[in-house]
C-alpha cells in the first residue's frame, strides 16, 4: 500500500481537484482521475521522500478561517492607505525566529503571509531558521511577531508536529 500510494493526502486532493475541474462525479471521471492521482503521487515521492503526517486535520479549518479573516482585514487596511492622496506607509523589514521546521508547514505559512497584502515573505534561512518578512504598515515590531506566532505558528505546530 505504501508503495502504491506514497502520498495519500496528495492523491486524494488531486482526485477531488480533477472531479471539480470536470464538474462531474461519473464513474469514468473517478477512474481516470484516480489513475492520474496515483501516478502523480508516485512521481512526487521522488522529490518528496518523507511522509507527510497531519496530526490534527480539523485544526486546518480553524487555520483557514483565521487566515481568511486576517486577509480581509489586511486588504481593507492596505486599501485605505493606498487611497490616500500621498501614500506613505511606515514599512519595514522584520527578521523573526521560527520554531516551525516542517517544510510543508513553512510553505503554508509562506502562502498565508504572502496572500496577506500587508506582508510579504522574502527569505527563509534554514541554517538559523529565521525568516525575513517585509511589512507594509509596521507599527509595532514586537507585537507583529507575537501575532504571527500566536495566530499561525502555534496552529501549524499543532497540526504538523
Amino acid at each position: 500500500m505504501r508503495r502504491l500510494l506514497p502520498h495519500p493526502i496528495l492523491a486524494g486532493f488531486l482526485l477531488v481537484l480533477w472531479l471539480v475541474l470536470q464538474q462531474s462525479a461519473g464513474l469514468g471521471h473517478i477512474l481516470f482521475g484516480g489513475v492520474i492521482a496515483i501516478a502523480v503521487s508516485m512521481a512526487a515521492s521522488a522529490i518528496i521522500p518523507e511522509r507527510i503526517v497531519i496530526r490534527r486535520p480539523l485544526k486546518f479549518i480553524q487555520l483557514i478561517f483565521v487566515a481568511g479573516l486576517d486577509i480581509i482585514r489586511s486588504n481593507l487596511a492596505v486599501m485605505s492607505v493606498l487611497f490616500h492622496p500621498r501614500p506613505n506607509p511606515t514599512a519595514g523589514f522584520i527578521e523573526m525566529d521560527l520554531t516551525l521546521k516542517n517544510p510543508f508547514a513553512l510553505a503554508i505559512l509562506a502562502v498565508i503571509l504572502t496572500a496577506t497584502p500587508g506582508s510579504a515573505w522574502l527569505e527563509y534561512d534554514r541554517a538559523r531558521s529565521t525568516v525575513l518578512i517585509h511589512v507594509f504598515d509596521l507599527v509595532d515590531e514586537e507585537e507583529w511577531v507575537a501575532t504571527v506566532k500566536k495566530r499561525y505558528e502555534a496552529l501549524l505546530l499543532e497540526i504538523f508536529q
Binding site: T114, T116, A120
Partner: peptide, 18 residues
C-alpha cells in the same frame, strides 16, 4: 504610485487575494 520595490510588491497581492 508607491516609491520602492519592496512597497510595490504589496499592491498586486490585493488583486490576487480579496
Amino acid at each position: 504610485r508607491l516609491k520602492s520595490f519592496y512597497l510595490r510588491i504589496h499592491g498586486p497581492t490585493m488583486g490576487t487575494s480579496m
